[in-house]
Structures are given as C-alpha cells and as structure tokens.
Design a protein around this nucleic acid. Structure first.
Length: 833
RNA sequence: GCCCCUGUGGCGGAAUUGGUAGACGCGCUCGACUCAAAAUCGAGUUCCGCAAGGAGUGCCCGUUCGAGUCGGGCCAGGGGCACCA
C-alpha cells in the first residue's frame, strides 16, 4: 500500500464506481424511511466557486450520513438557468444565451462531479429547457384560471436607452447601471401573482417551521408586516360631485381627537381628479414624482405637502373640519393611500404639522395630570392614558383603540382591519431569457391563456441582441398568433416570468418528473417536504417566501396536498478571503499578491471579505482539487468555522486538511494487528460514534471534525490491540460522509465487501458511553484548587471528606471549619470558607 | 429610525440544565529523524510571574456557594427592514 494517498487516482476511480453503480440514485418506490436533502440549485454563471463547494459539501455529508443510516435519500441537482447574465453575455460576446448557459452547465457539472457529491444526476434539470418551463407555463395557466394571476398598471424603472425595465438594484444614482441613461418612472401593464391572498397563511405557517433559523422566520414576519388597525371614512365637507369621502387607514385610532389634517397619496384617485382640474395640483404631483427611489434618497427627501383646499369632517364632531393635503410620503399601495395626521405622538406627523402650521394636541400622557404637558420638536412616544379626547379620557391606549373601532362600526363609518406590508408579486420581465408568459392578447377576448395542449410556448432561437430592447417584442413573427379563444388575430405576451418563479417549484419537479405534466402529486408527496434545505441567507425572504407561496397556491388549486415545502432550513455562511491591493489601489488576485510580495513590491492587505470577482479575492476550486483532491477540499470546508458563520479560505487551512487526509490513510494502512481489549480506547470510540452522529444531525460539522481528530489522536497514542484495529475500521465509516474517497480506498484496502457509502453507520454501545472514573473539581469559594480522580457515583459524604482533607483546601482554611460545603456528585465539591 | 444577532488565547473556534474556560485545528517554540530539507513523530503553547501565586470570556453593576452561560445598563461589530400611517 502506498504511504501517500493519491487523490487524483482515487477520486476518479470511486466517482466512476458510484456513477456506474447508480449508488446515489433515489428510488421512488423504496419502503425505507425517506430523506430529501436539497441545496439551493446554482445559477450557471460559468464556473463553480467556493461558496458552491461549501454549500454542496454540507448537504452531501448529511445525505451520505442518512444513507448510511438506512434512509432512501433524494439528493438532486439542477440549474437555475434563466436570467440576465446570459443576455449580457449575448450582448457582449455575441453568443446566444442558450449556448452560453448550456456550455456553463457542462463545465460546472464536470466540476461538481470531481468533488464526489452523492447526487442523483438522473433527475438533473435546467429551468431554461422547454421540458421544465413548459410545465411551469401549465402551472401558471392553472393559477390564472384559479384567479391568482392578474394584470395591472404598475410603475417600473425604465431605461430609455437599453429600452428595458431595471430592477431597483440596477438603478445607480438615478441612472441605468449599463447605459448610464437617466431612468424614468414609467407605467407598464404587468402580471402579478396574488401572494397577498396568502399573507395570513404565510405568516401563521412560520410558527410551525421550528427547524428554520429564528432569524429567517423573523425576517419573513417583518416582510409580511401585519398591522392591526382600522379603516374609516372622512366625509368631505361641502358639495363636491364625485368626492364624497376619503377612506384612511390608521393603527392609532386612539389619537383621533389629536387629528389635525388628512393627507392623500399623489397617486390617490381624488388627488388625480383634483390634478385634472387644477394645474397647481398637477404641478405638485409632478414634483413628487421627481427624485430617486433609493432608501437613502427617501430618507433625506423633504416631506412635502400641498393644501388642496378640501375639508373633511371629523367623525366624532360635525362642526370640526380638517384640511386635506396631498403629501409626497403617503404611499398609494399601503393601507388606503390616505392617512390622518395626529402630530403629538408621531415624529413624521409632528414635523409635517410644524412645517405647515397645523395644530399639535397632546392626546396621550403618562398620567391624567400631565394632560397639558407641552410637545416640543420631539413626538412623545410614551404609553399612558388618553387625555383631551372627550369620551376617551382616562382610558388606556388599548381600550381607546377598541372603543373607537366599536363606535365606528356601530355608526357604519369605519371598521377594525388589518394592513399588510406584503405586496403582490410582480412577475413580468421585459426580457428574452426567461419563461414566456403563456398568454395571448386578443382585441375581442382580452388576455387569453394558451391552452395546455399548445404548451410549451417555446422561446424563438433566432433573436438578435444588436438592438436594445426585448428581442421577443422585436421578433418578426413570434408574437403574431391566432387567439386561442376566437381564432382572430392575437398578440403573444412578450414579457417573460421572473426567474424566482422558476425556483419556486423546482424541488417538486426533482421529486417527480413525468413527461406529460409538472409532477405526479402522489409521488411528489412521498418525498416532500424537503427535510433539509441548505443555502445562503441572502434568499431568506424572496426565494423562500415565493416557494412557500407557490406551494400553498398549488394546494389551494388542489394540485398538491402540501403546505410547507421545506421542513428544515439551514443558512450557511459565506466563504471569505483576504483582499489585496497594490500601491496604486488596484485589486490583486491572491497569487498576484504573492508574486508581488516575492518581487519586493509593496502590497496592501485589505479586509477579509466575501469572495467576489470585483475585489479579485476569489479562489477557483478546480486547481485546488487538482492539487489536493476532493477530500481535502471537503474536509477544509467542514473544519473549524461553524457552518452558519463565514469561513475564511486560507492556504494553511487547505494544507492542514490535506495533512489530515493523509493521516487517515496512514492510520488505515499501518494498522498493526493486535490482541486484547483496550477499554479506554473503546470508550473513546463509542463516545465519538455518538458525538459525530449527533453533530452531523445538527449540521455542526466543525464539532464532528473535532470529534474525529480526538479519536485519531487517541488511536495513534494507543498500543496495538484488537480494540485499536476495530477503532481504525470504525473510524473509516465515521469519516465516510465527509471524505468519501479516502474512506472508500481504505475500506477496499481492508478487504471489506461493497462500498463504504453503502455500509451501515456504526452503532454506539450505550454501556461504553459512560466512564467508570470521574475527575472531581475541588473548589474553595468557587475557585478551582485541585482535582481528584474517584470512582463514578461516589457518595456525597465521601466527596465532602475528600475535599475538606485536601491539602490545598486545608492551607486556605488555615484550621477554620468550612462554613458550608456544596457537593455536585461526579462533578465538583465547593468548600465555602 | 425600528427589529435582530454576535463579542472567548496570536488566529478559527469548543464548553448539557449555571458546575474544572480555552476541547479540536492552525500558527509558533523546542526536540527526534536527516548530510540537509520536505514529510513525519514527540514535548510545550491564555496572560503576568523563576516560582509560590495572581488575573482572565468586550466594559460596568447585580443575582448565586459558584456566571462565558441568568438579570440590568453601556460599548463595539454585523445583518434585516425602512416615507408602512
């Protein structure tokens, strides 16, 4: 046996054995317990990066571990293959997006295979292929027919040069990131999915996701943003045809007697109606539309109001009238698009009142005696009792809210309600490389879904990216089709679906992929929900919320009896690396920094950051695999850093991992046969079996790695014995999920039949998990003074005597009797002096 | 601004319900092997101190026989949301 492990030979050999044997192919018909382990599928950007390696290694360890525990494991892989980078590549390099994407998939698939992941490649899918997106179109049609899809005018960021819609992140300082043109706010008819219909369910469902990080649940909860409050209607004073009332939303009806104004969104129908009559109003609304929409700009933007001259009547006092403003900070798509101002207890309302000379009246005070405490420039946000509010005086805030709602409901002018921050999901993208929306527009019939027997609506291949704009829109023939309903001249929808739609159901298609429909519900149900989903925290809201919504929508239309798609979620940290810059401030690749340092040039070492192309601090996994083999890379990815935290890539780290792979190999090879039992080593072995299993289950891979190191240290120190031989053999099974190639090599070299991948996970003997001797800490006043070894289960009195008689304790007591002695059996004795 | 998380050696990090802080790895020091180096093996490595001993888990206070762990108040770093009425 070679003294040094040869990863290049071993990796290729075992990968071939696994592939040819179909080792990791999941059977739909198995009667073993099932585990569905899934990592977020990659976008085929070109090459695998370290973040992928870390993500897929984690999932792989769990998948392999579950297999060894007798589970039928589904661990698939595919490609989130639609999206803008392919179109950018098409424009820059004059290649078709499909050609570019498929070439990337081929490259990345080969790279993934070299890492030895236990994947069922027979279920591979790419969302850019008609046999995936065609089924997606069918699901879209189902949702359309169930009334969960609608079309409405919506504002978008429009780049007038590239003639495309930009996402908010693509607008930099008000300009398109690519063209540099000033971005316009333009209204376009867009398709929406009614995620808001499911707001309550999606919120309530979070409670049941007890295997999700609290952080992600909290983020989703905040995103959905449920607010209890009330809607009520102000009557507009005076005869105004078509303008009888203004409906507002508030979470603080208790401050109703502090009301000083009503304010409308610039997009509010009444504001729009006024603008049609009065040029000043139209000018003000135009002013509101200027300026950016970024968070920073909104934060610093001035709060502007325009007094319309309209008055509304206070709901509790027909003689009390309030002015109506149009205000730039009132959002049309939250609540009712109109509010009332109550200045004393809300900072923004207070600023607005001071600016426009509106009255400020305290209606909540810490105590009833402080009703006249003046309000300065700071709103008083303290809780307390209602004051200056007629029949509400003396009530708690909570009671006053209930009272106002009760009176409004009795009077028929308002009601308790709930407002949501969550908006419907706009899925229209004016781009080529996405799933065509299966709709035909017809002058006579309106928007008509494409009948299922005419699906898939396939993307045309002959498109040009020479001219800006959506190639589907420009295509000479593609959009001209007959209306499926009346047969008249129709026009295909040229928008494509947001790629988040593609990733909202791929995990279902992995579980079941019939040719004639999206999935077989019965087969899909056998696997779903995904037991463990692993991916980056950057998807905590959008992808994970959309997938939850899609799953519930499918249940709603009776297609899949499932509420939550992912019962367990784990969000792993990023792979980071130090950044380097030269004298001139140019970012240097790590190897360039090394070379420059060697050449005596000065190199500035920057912060440790997420690997990114722009900072040039990436490390390409492939040459690392060439040099050290898959196992060393995998072991490094699992070592040291807890998986939810960032992992800093380091040369020393991969060297260390490589050394350990070789150490394992030497241990197995040089395992000198011995006789007799070594009870201490057997205890260590069984404790390690239990600990590694528990730590893998908990995804605490760094701890499992530490457990293995301890065992390896113990084995190396132990003299040859039958126990030692056994320990080495068992250790190879313990490391098999993490470093499968060297484990297979050792397993085979030891003459074992079959594959270690198919071997059973070792069982820990409970009798060997406990020690028969323990170390007792001897403390004086809680400070450690000595330790003694005793038999496990020693009597309290004996331990106490032992401690008091201890020389270190005697010295401190100096002849005095201890005031008190605390005994924790099998742990410690604390003598209180 | 609101919400949340994290602070432990030179570094990454361990530490059941409060019960021996620093497991394990990296790095470093010394030693063995070698003509030499690499690899490997052995010993050591929280800080101060020759030692006895003392200090120590971001800072301050508290609860307790005993606090990395619990409570209160700060400081620092990170994340999410953000004109949400």
């Amino acid at each position: 046996m070679a003294s040094r492990f040869n990863p290049l030979k071993a990796d290729a050999h075992w990968q071939k054995v696994w592939e040819e044997g179909g080792t990791f192919r999941a059977s739909d018909d198995s009667d073993r317990p099932r585990s569905y382990v899934l990592e977020m599928f990659p976008y085929p950007s070109g090459r695998i990066h370290m973040g992928h390696v870390r993500n897929y290694t984690m999932g792989d360890v769990l998948a392999r571990y579950r297999r060894m525990n007798g589970h039928e494991v589904l661990h698939p892989m595919g490609w989130d293959a639609f999206g803008m980078p392919a179109e950018n590549a098409a424009m820059e390099r004059k290649v078709h997006p499909g050609e570019w994407t498929r070439a990337n998939i081929a490259t990345m698939k080969a790279q993934l295979k070299r890492l030895g992941f236990a994947l069922d490649w027979s279920r591979e899918l790419a969302t850019c292929e008609p046999d995936y997106y065609g089924h997606e179109q069918a699901l879209f049609v189902d949702l359309f027919e169930a009334g969960l899809v609608y079309r409405k005018e919506s504002e978008v960021n429009w780049d007038p040069v590239d003639m495309t819609v930009l996402a908010n992140e693509q607008v930099i300082d008000g300009r398109g990131w690519r063209s540099g043109a000033l971005v316009e706010r333009r209204k376009l008819a867009q398709w929406f999915l009614k995620i808001t219909d499911f707001a309550e369910e999606l919120l309530d469902g979070l409670d049941g996701l007890d295997q999700w990080p609290d952080k992600v649940r909290l983020m989703q909860e905040n995103w959905i943003g449920k607010s209890r409050g009330m809607r009520f209607r102000f009557r507009i004073a005076g005869p105004r045809p078509g303008m009888e009332e203004i409906e507002v939303f508030t979470t603080r009806p208790d401050t109703i007697f502090g009301a000083n104004s009503a304010a409308l969104s610039p997009d509010h129908p009444i504001a729009q109606a006024l603008a049609a009559e009065q040029p000043e109003v139209a000018a003000f609304i135009a002013l509101c539309k200027q300026g950016g929409t970024t968070a920073a700009e909104l934060e610093t933007a001035e709060k502007l109001g325009f007094d319309t001259g309209l008055k509304v009547v206070h709901p509790f006092d027909p003689d009390w009238q309030l002015p109506v403003f149009i205000a730039n900070f009132v959002l049309m798509d939250y609540g009712t698009g109109a509010i009332f101002g109550s200045a004393a207890h809300d900072q923004r309302d207070l600023d607005f009142a001071r600016k426009y000379g509106l009255p400020v009246r305290r209606v909540v005070a810490p105590t009833a005696e402080e009703a006249d405490l003046p309000i300065g420039d700071e709103a008083d946000l303290r809780d307390g009792v209602i004051v200056n509010s007629r029949f509400l005086d003396g009530m708690s805030v909570e009671a006053a809210i209930a009272e106002v709602i009760a009176r409004a409901e009795a009077g028929g002018w308002g009601e308790g309600t709930t407002a949501w921050r969550l908006r419907d999901w706009g899925v229209s993208r004016q781009r080529y490389w996405g799933t065509p929306i299966p709709i035909v527009h017809c002058a006579a019939c309106g928007a008509v879904p494409v009948p299922k027997d005419q699906l898939p609506v396939i993307l045309p291949e002959d498109v040009d990216f020479e001219t800006p704009g959506n190639p589907l829109e420009r295509h000479p023939t593609w959009k001209h089709v007959a209306c499926p309903s009346c047969g008249g001249a129709g026009r295909r929808e040229t928008d494509t679906l947001d790629t988040f739609v593609d990733s909202s159901w791929y995990f279902i298609r992995f579980a079941s992929q019939p040719g004639n429909r999206p999935f077989d519900p019965e087969v899909a149900k056998r696997w779903l929900p995904v037991n463990q989903y692993i991916g980056g925290v950057e998807h905590a809201i959008l992808h994970l919320l959309y997938a939850r919504f899609w799953t519930r929508a499918l249940k709603h239309i009776g297609m899949l009896d499932l509420e939550e798609p992912f019962s367990g979620l784990f969000t792993q940290g990023m792979v980071t690396h130090r950044t380097y810059q030269d004298e001139a401030g140019n970012w240097l690749l790590p190897e360039e920094a090394e070379a420059a340092k060697a050449a005596g040039e000065s190199v500035k070492a920057g912060r440790v950051e997420k690997m990114s192309k722009s900072k040039r601090n990436t490390v390409d996994p492939e040459p690392i695999v060439d040099q050290y083999g898959a196992d060393a890379v995998r072991w490094f990815m699992l070592s040291d850093s807890p998986p939810e935290r960032d992992l800093e890539w380091s040369e020393a780290g991969i060297e260390g991992a490589w050394k350990f792979v070789n150490r394992l190999w030497r241990l197995s090879a040089a395992s000198e046969a011995g006789e007799g039992t070594d009870i201490a080593l057997e205890r260590k072995l069984h404790q390690t079996i239990a600990a590694v299993g528990a730590n893998i289950e908990a995804l605490a891979f760094n701890k499992a790695v530490a457990n293995i190191y301890e065992l390896a240290n113990a084995i190396e120190k132990a003299p040859p014995s039958a126990s030692r031989t056994e320990a080495v053999a068992v250790m190879m099974r313990l490391v098999a999920p993490m470093v499968p190639h060297v484990a297979e090599e050792a397993w085979a070299a030891a003459g074992n039949p079959g594959l270690v991948a198919d071997a059973a996970w070792p069982e820990a003997d409970p009798a060997l998990l406990v020690e028969d001797e323990v170390t007792i800490a001897i403390q004086v006043n809680g400070k450690l003074r000595d330790t003694v070894r005793t038999a496990k289960g020693a009597a309290r009195e004996d331990l106490e005597k032992l401690a008091v008689a201890n020389t270190a304790v005697q010295r401190i007591l100096a002849g005095a009797a201890p005031r008190k002695v605390i005994v924790v059996p099998d742990r410690l004795v604390n003598v209180v002096a």
